[in-house]
């Protein structure tokens, strides 16, 4: 009963905050970027909430539960990627005064490159929409086990849609404060304290792990250095071009604030959160024996170590972690779809664009619900196929910001084609070089970017 009550309270709070804040939304820019006027600390919380999703919370804990100390590579790889994204890209992106990634590409490299990037971005981010909606449903069924997965996914999708369709980015940034408060309280304070006390501290945890599975105490003892470095590089570089936070970076009041808020969010909240989630998974080796699948270590620990009321609050934090990311990726997909796909075919005034963004959001979430429910394998395939987007974007972003003069439409188009072809062919061939297909595609596209852009570069004619 307490679980159901907490779930209802959380959902009601999200809706009230979102709807009240959302009444301020009047224009398409209010909806997409909160009129580029998000206060510094509000943006810090919002960026953290968008970054922290099912992968960061359940994934990090699961890796350390399954692989021990070696499992920390996921947190370290993702964390370093986020720091690089903040330091290298955030300020520069905000300086461009754009709202979407394709808009940025169109501004510098023309329509054809932007169209290709728009399609790749939508495809890649949509896979995250579907997986986050599925995660939302899965967590709600932990509160109310009598609910079917589809019904739980439907309820959470409707809740997410109500506040985001009304309030867009304005509502998202306000509700993110509640989400991040719950997440920090649960994953960085309550759960570690409970785990440490129950397991007899770090000494007790290491002693228990040494007795049961000593390899889990050795760095690279369970997965090997090659996998750790390859996967760490994968998560680090793919995290550098972060679609989830693009709208929030664009919504900052200035380039300096965008960079500062992004870096504060990463160093103060996101990176420590990843390490804490990993630590909880590591403590789980000592506390939870014989768990069927490592993915459910965090909910299993909540169930085993806490009472009903505290457990319900901790589960609400998991719901909050996924809700922020789900809302964020759905918004990115719908804004990109409205501005960079539909907007290319029909001219729209501000009022119409706002309506199209809202309708797109409902369509994207509806499709995400169907794909997320009926095809968990489709979602994982889409995530794999979404890799070319990252492989193309990382070198193009670096080229745009640090090699701008030489970058040209033809060279970039060749880079995109090579990124897509090399990633997919290598993936279909079964990743023969033992590195991920994303990393292979990234290496190919980076080399191509330098060669193709240099070869296709034409010096601008100087008028007399």
């Amino acid at each position: 009963m307490a679980k159901i009550l907490i779930a209802i309270l959380y959902i009601a709070a999200i809706l009230v905050i979102g709807i009240i804040a959302g009444r301020k939304v009047k224009t398409a820019d209010d909806f997409a970027t909160a009129s580029r006027n998000i206060p510094y600390w509000t943006n810090v919380y919002s960026m953290s909430s968008a970054w922290i999703g099912a992968g960061s919370t359940l994934g990090c804990a699961s890796m350390c539960y399954a692989y021990g100390i070696s499992g920390f590579y996921l947190a370290i790889g993702v964390g370093i990627g986020a720091i690089l994204a903040s330091v290298v890209f955030a300020g520069r992106i905000r300086q461009e005064n754009v709202s979407t990634i394709p808009e940025l590409i169109r501004k510098h490299l023309g329509k054809t490159c932007a169209d290709c990037i728009a399609l790749l971005t939508i495809f890649s981010v949509f896979s995250v929409v579907a997986s986050q909606i599925r995660s939302l449903g899965t967590i709600l069924t932990m509160f109310i086990p009598s609910l079917s997965l589809f019904m739980a996914m439907l309820i959470m999708t409707v809740v997410m849609l109500i506040y985001t369709v009304i309030g867009g980015m304005v509502a998202a940034t306000k509700t993110d404060k509640l989400n991040i408060g719950l997440m920090v309280l649960s994953v960085m304070i309550i759960l570690p304290i409970i785990a440490l006390v129950r397991a007899g501290g770090v000494a007790g945890i290491t002693a228990a792990v040494r007795d049961a599975e000593p390899l889990k105490l050795k760095v690279a003892g369970t997965v090997g250095w090659a996998t750790m470095i390859s996967s760490g590089l994968y998560f680090g570089t793919s995290g550098m071009v972060n679609s989830e936070n693009f709208l929030r970076v664009c919504g900052a009041r200035s380039a300096k604030e965008a960079r500062g808020a992004s870096l504060t969010s990463t160093l103060l909240i996101y990176f420590p959160y990843l390490l804490f989630a990993s630590f909880i998974g590591f403590a789980g080796i000592a506390l939870v024996k014989n768990l069927g699948t490592s993915d459910s270590i965090l909910p299993a620990m909540v169930n085993q170590l806490t009472g009903t009321f505290l457990g319900a609050i901790l589960l609400a934090a998991l719901l909050a972690a996924v809700m922020g990311t789900a809302a964020s990726v759905t918004m990115v997909t719908s804004v990109t779809l409205s501005r960079d796909v539909i907007g290319r075919f029909t001219k729209m005034d501000d009022r119409k664009l706002l309506t199209v963004q809202r309708v797109s959001m409902i369509a994207v979430a509806g499709l995400g619900l169907i794909v997320g429910y009926f095809g968990s394998s489709i979602v994982s395939i889409m995530e794999d196929v979404g890799a070319p987007c990252g492989a193309a974007l990382v070198p193009i972003f670096c080229g745009l910001f640090f090699w701008g003069k030489k970058m040209n439409a033809k060279g970039t188009l060749i880079t995109i084609v090579v990124a897509v072809a090399s990633t997919l062919i290598y993936w279909i061939a079964g990743s023969p070089l033992k590195i991920s297909h994303f990393l292979f595609g990234l290496i190919c596209s980076t080399i191509t970017m330098f060669i193709a852009n240099a070869a296709c570069y034409k010096k601008p004619e100087v008028s007399a």
Binding site: W41, Y45, G181, M188, I189, V197, G201, V202, P272, F279
Partner: peptide, 30 residues
């Protein structure tokens, strides 16, 4: 519970305190 355990708890609580401090400060300023 040893020294390292308290360090972990202090870091977690410190981050939590900082997050809530700025959240309340921003709300009060409005």
């Amino acid at each position: 519970m040893g020294f390292i355990d308290y360090v972990i708890i202090v870091i977690g609580c410190g981050i939590g305190a900082s997050v809530f401090y700025h959240m309340i400060k921003e709300a009060v300023r409005k």
